[in-house]
Design a protein around this nucleic acid. Sequence first.
DNA 1: TTTAGCACTCAGAGAGTGAGAGTGCTAATG
DNA 2: CATTAGCACTCTCACTCTCTGAGTGCTAAA
Lengths: 366, 366
Amino acid sequence: MTSLSQRKKEILRTVVELFVKGAEPVGSKAVAEALGSSVSSATIRSEMAELESMGLLEQPHTSAGRIPSSNGYRIYVNDLMQDQNISSDDAKVIDSTLDGHLTETPSLLDKVGSLTSRLTTYPAYAMSSMTGVISIVRFDLIYVDSSTFIIVVLLSNDTVKNKLVHLTTNVEQTMLTRLSAVLNASFTGIPEERITPALITSSERAIGDNTGLVAVVAGFTIELLIEAKTVGTRVSGAINLLSHPEYRDVDKAQRIIRYLSDEKELARLPSPETPGEIKITIGPENLADELRDSSVMAIKYDTGSDLQGLIGVVGPTRMDYSKVAAHLSYMAQGLSWLLGGPGSEVMQLKASSKVNKTGDDRVGEE
Amino acid sequence: MTSLSQRKKEILRTVVELFVKGAEPVGSKAVAEALGSSVSSATIRSEMAELESMGLLEQPHTSAGRIPSSNGYRIYVNDLMQDQNISSDDAKVIDSTLDGHLTETPSLLDKVGSLTSRLTTYPAYAMSSMTGVISIVRFDLIYVDSSTFIIVVLLSNDTVKNKLVHLTTNVEQTMLTRLSAVLNASFTGIPEERITPALITSSERAIGDNTGLVAVVAGFTIELLIEAKTVGTRVSGAINLLSHPEYRDVDKAQRIIRYLSDEKELARLPSPETPGEIKITIGPENLADELRDSSVMAIKYDTGSDLQGLIGVVGPTRMDYSKVAAHLSYMAQGLSWLLGGPGSEVMQLKASSKVNKTGDDRVGEE
DNA sequence: TTTAGCACTCAGAGAGTGAGAGTGCTAATG
DNA sequence: CATTAGCACTCTCACTCTCTGAGTGCTAAA
């Protein structure tokens, strides 16, 4: 790719920015004005004609202005886009939302997604997934009454799961104590796939259980291990698509929204390599047909433990890349801080924030 | 209201049904054909004119056919609508979905909502809320290591909540034992609003704690009580609105979808009195302006414990009331059964189903 | 009471028109 | 040689007008 003259760069940048703002093809006169009339529209015109022949601009029809091609956007995003800070209002909103009651991952994803969507005006998705293998660190069985007990399991990713079990038969405190000793001996430290019927049977023998209690606990355990690994995904503000003129066509909007509500498809969306990095795919760079004339921006954030989160935004290729980038960065930074990514160390107790139902939390007292 | 002749009833019913199907004003000829040509279109014409003067039909414009007025729909729904069974395919889908891994309330609401929406082709909402006051039944503090412990709380609505706490200071097993004794003595059985700073201070004195441990535990407790009471709401398939011609106008669709994403508004939607009953509000019967030309159908289901669930559907007044009613009934029945409503008694253990992360579960062994 | 016939109404599709925006080209200018 | 003003040209969009067809209400006959 031959490099562009400074003036061509400015013109390309101007065209992108005006088009992002106005959603209408940009004419030479508008560009000339935006550039402060240092050159006339005729000059711009010939420059734009060259940019078009280089494949960076295109013309919807002869008598219209120019719009950026996807290559044009690509160059804009790589070289011409200027870093932007989010407004202090938006920062406040993000801060206060993150600072609120983030009691569990699904609801956190929800909030992050819907906030991102609201602030960017594009549909957003948020997902978090396990990296690494989960095993059980310890079991506890809490005796409630003769027909009721609670299973509490601490997992290797520092989350705790529990379940209340009502029996139609009776249990005794001593039985539970014995059972939990056996479980702690044989079920902890091993990955999920090694909790087999054979293991369960042998545990049952070890404890002399013929009531199926071990099976109940084991069944629950397997299920929650699967659940703990499961990727949580939320899509928010899909409806925002409709506000953008490129999706006025209801069918088109519907196709994309349906696409977004398919978790499997979402998981396949491009994802940045490292936390903090923003991955942008523009128009035809997207593999999915549905996104051929849309763009996707995504950022990763680190949550300490073994969880890794992703926030993404889907919009028209005319999306406001620089604004969205600023929002994503700010949001991801806040999340990494909140959830204790690598840089965050032990956190201070802050009234009623950072409490986490099933998750990890660090609390300090002076 | 003067009662209608049998023929007028048939005509009204036909108009509603044809209009529901075709989304276009229904002319006298179409009605005559649908009625098997037992009378001519001219006769139908004069009947329809009378139905119009009675306020049950209306004419969008002079040269168009008739559409039902909201009063017309009301009569249809009250008197003329015939019970319908859902297709066996749909029944299968519902059964298998409900039968799957319903591990927690939010995800259950999610599934129920999106399934309802998919089958009915209208946006659906599902919510569940607490009835009654929640208090704490018991505390357990599980010692993990010198800087880590788990808080486990059993609530009066038979749910269990937990949290993993990392400290920057050390704790000992004995301290936790003492603490849990004090907490069980002073915090259990009382409603949330009585957990005051004074109570916390006095507990701290009782135990000789100056590390803030009690405050941490109390803070968490208050938070989770609030959380446990919180109404969970999910809206699914909002995008389905766009498939119906009355919402081709993007702005209109957007207004309604925004309305639906406001939990507070949803909570205000009409709700049936008793489980199993379906509440229908048609067009202007809705208090909310946004729903003035839409209809809402909702059904309650019972979940045993103190939870009560609601499934609702929003659509055009031209909605297929009878089909939606069938779906809602089937769904609600399945849920009541699954979640152990009044009629379900203790359930049998079924491999890996009905496991419930934070909730209640009944397990039986022979 | 029902029906056939007929004049009437009106929305919506299609064709035609004019205005306006923007272009590319050419010739003049510094 | 780069830049600019001028100009003819192109094409979309909004608007108007016309025509068609569906459906009606009324009237008179069965």
